[in-house]
């Protein structure tokens, strides 16, 4: 499978935007469509795009995280978020809502649900990553001179 200049270039352009979009979805999920799942899935889509363009090597290069770690920390984050309220005499997963006026930044609305959502997103990303690693094959850089590093 030959690589494609057009795909490589566009994917690189889109990648960051997709990540940003994912973050946005994650942060606004509580008030607009979105949330941890969709956020994670969009990150996953972005990573998959890199995979489609450059194979598993490119994914590894872009995201040098072990998917296991991502899955594990994601799950640990979510469960920790759930467990913490127990220590404060509340029910499991009873999310706190912190509203504070922070100087010039204005009102800060922060629900601990966000952390839970972050955990969710982590797991989703980790899953997509692990799927790609599992099924992935290497794509050679054959026919892709634009990927060669310029000699210093």
């Amino acid at each position: 499978m030959r690589r494609s200049l057009i795909l490589d270039v566009v994917v690189r352009l889109v990648f960051h935007s997709a990540l940003l979009l994912a973050l946005f979805l994650l942060f606004t999920g509580h008030n607009r469509p979105g949330g941890g799942f969709v956020g994670g899935l969009v990150v996953g889509a972005a990573i998959s795009l890199r995979y489609v363009a450059g194979g598993i090597d490119e994914v590894r290069q872009v995201l040098p995280l072990r998917p296991w770690t991502l899955l594990g920390t994601g799950l640990a984050t979510a469960t920790t978020t759930a467990l913490v309220p127990l220590a404060f005499g509340r029910q499991l997963m009873d999310h706190g809502l912190y509203e504070r006026h922070v100087g010039f930044l204005g009102e800060l609305h922060l629900s601990t649900a966000l952390f839970f959502d972050i955990g969710v997103a982590q797991v989703v990303v980790g899953m997509v990553l692990l799927l790609l690693v599992s099924f992935g094959e290497r794509l050679p850089t054959f026919g892709a001179p634009w990927l060669l590093r310029r000699q210093p």
Partner: peptide
């Protein structure tokens, strides 16, 4: 999201 994701699927 669809613009992004459709691209992924097709490609």
């Amino acid at each position: 999201v669809v613009a992004l994701v459709a691209f992924l699927g097709t490609s």
